[in-house]
Structures are given as structure tokens and as C-alpha cells.
Simulated assay, not measured.
Amino acid sequence: MDTRGLARLDRRVAGCRACPRLVAWREEVARTKRAAFADWTYWGRPVPGFGPPDARLLIIGLAPAAHGGNRTGRMFTGDRSGDVLYQALYEVGLASQPTSVHADDGLELYGVRVTSPVHCAPPANRPTPGERDTCRPWLVQELRLLRPTLRAAVVLGAFGWQAALPAFAEAGWSVPRPRPAFAHGARVPLDGPHDGPHDGSQDRLDLFGCFHVSQRNTFTGRLTPEMLREVLRTAAEAAGL
């Protein structure tokens, strides 16, 4: 594992200013704040991934929330989507605590890293395809650094799925053609890169689809806590956790 490489990548991600619309939005939100967080100093920058550098399981979301990750500086921290995700991770034994309020609250993830294909909070939680594509090289570099240990990934939602498949391909995994469609519970095996002394099977990765932990999905019951835990348990087993 390349611990220093991943730390360097996280610092570079946090300094990115490539998308003018996203830069303007995240910084405006950080200035104006939400009344409930008036005393907070918002992060207001791109939010890097979070979790150990030798992660065997990667969770890929969509983008940070304006008053969640954009406020705290940690993926899925400080909003209701994060509450659902970290509760489930805790319940299946992959996190040290069921909640995450800020970046210094002591939360540890066990063998899991959390990231997203877009690292800045977008207006209306909707990055454009162009912003997704501009941000993709960060995900590709992250995948390459995690490649020695990574054995499974859970992608939350169709947007993340569409962004992740080309990123995995660019990072060296073999993605089926035509590209598999997103579905909750989907499981797609990706053979690893063939650039080493083996046939790539040692780096095989299982890619799982899961409905996003958005309030729209969790409030309506489209995604229940039981459904989320089942996907996470299956993915953790595939990752050898």
C-alpha cells in the first residue's frame, strides 16, 4: 500500500479549483452557512476520501452535501445520508461508532474507504456530466493507489455507477462491454490489470450496486436499513473482511 501517496492525493484533491461553478457554490455556502451551523467554520473545499490506505472495500457515493461534507471536510459526515450510511457500517462491524458529526470525532473505518466521483458540493446535489468527467482523474488515481488491497466496491446510485465504471477501466480493471446497467443488488466481477506477473485474477474486484442513501430513498422506503446492511455484508464478505 502507498500510504504517503494516498495522503498526497487527498491534499491535492482538497486544493482543486478545476470547476468554476462548483468552486463558486461551495465557497458561497461556506460564507453564508445555514442558521443551525452559524458557529461553524465550514470546510468549503473539495472533500477527499476517508478511510485506511489498505482498504479492501471502497464505497463510492455521488458528491458531498452543501451543509454536510462541505461543512465538516469528511465524506458523508454531518447530514442524514451519512447518518444512514455510518449507522449501517457500524451495525455490520465496519465502523467504530454509529454516527459521525465532524472530522475529529474519533470515527474509524475497518478495512473500508469512502469516496465519491465528484469531490465538491454541487448546487441542488446535481453535478453536471462535465463536472463528473473533470473530477474523474482523482477517482482513477485513488483506485490505482488502492489497487494492491482493494477487492470490492459498493456504488451508491446510478450517477456514481456511471462515473465509477469508466474510472475502474482507466485504473486497469476489465469492465464488461456493454457496460452493465445499475441495479440495487447488482454484482459485477471485474478482472484485475494484466500488467503483473500473473493473469489479473489476483486483483479481481467485485462491484456492487446499491440505491443511494439519499433522504428521498430512505424516507420513502426504497432503501431500507436492512437492504443497505445486506449489500454491505455481501460486499465485505467478497472483500475478505
Score class of each variant (00 low, 15 high):
L9T: 08
D10V: 01
R11D: 13
A14F: 09
A14T: 01
G15W: 11
G15C: 09
A18V: 03
C19R: 06
P20M: 00
V23A: 06
V23K: 11
V23G: 01
V23Y: 06
W25F: 15
R26Y: 02
R26C: 05
E27M: 13
V29T: 11
V29M: 13
R34I: 12
D39G: 15
W40N: 14
W40L: 10
Y42T: 05
Y42V: 02
G44Q: 02
P48D: 09
F50S: 02
G51W: 10
P53A: 13
A55C: 09
L57C: 13
I59Q: 00
I59G: 03
G61W: 14
L62K: 14
A66K: 08
H67M: 13
G68F: 12
G69H: 10
N70S: 15
R71K: 08
G73P: 02
T77F: 15
T77N: 14
G78A: 03
R80C: 07
Q87Y: 01
A88T: 12
Y90K: 00
V92R: 03
P98Q: 12
V101C: 04
H102Q: 05
G106K: 09
E108S: 13
V114A: 01
A121H: 04
A121W: 10
P123S: 07
P127C: 08
T128E: 10
P129K: 10
P129Q: 00
E131P: 03
E131R: 06
T134M: 06
P137Q: 09
W138R: 06
L139E: 00
Q141V: 01
E142A: 08
E142T: 11
L143Y: 07
R144L: 00
P148A: 05
T149W: 14
V155K: 07
V155G: 06
L156G: 03
L156E: 09
L156W: 04
L156T: 06
G157N: 11
A158L: 01
G160D: 15
W161M: 10
W161H: 00
L165Y: 14
L165I: 08
A169K: 14
E170K: 13
A171P: 01
A171Q: 08
W173E: 11
P176E: 08
P176C: 04
P176H: 13
R177S: 10
R179H: 09
R179E: 13
R179M: 12
P180N: 01
F182E: 05
A186P: 14
R187K: 08
G196L: 10
G196A: 13
G196I: 05
P197Q: 03
G200Q: 14
Q202L: 12
R204V: 00
L205K: 07
G209L: 13
F211R: 07
F211W: 12
S214H: 04
Q215K: 09
R216C: 03
R216M: 07
T218G: 01
F219E: 07
F219H: 14
R222K: 15
R222F: 03
P225R: 03
E226P: 01
M227C: 04
L228N: 12
R233Y: 07
A236Q: 07
A238R: 02
A238H: 00
L241H: 09
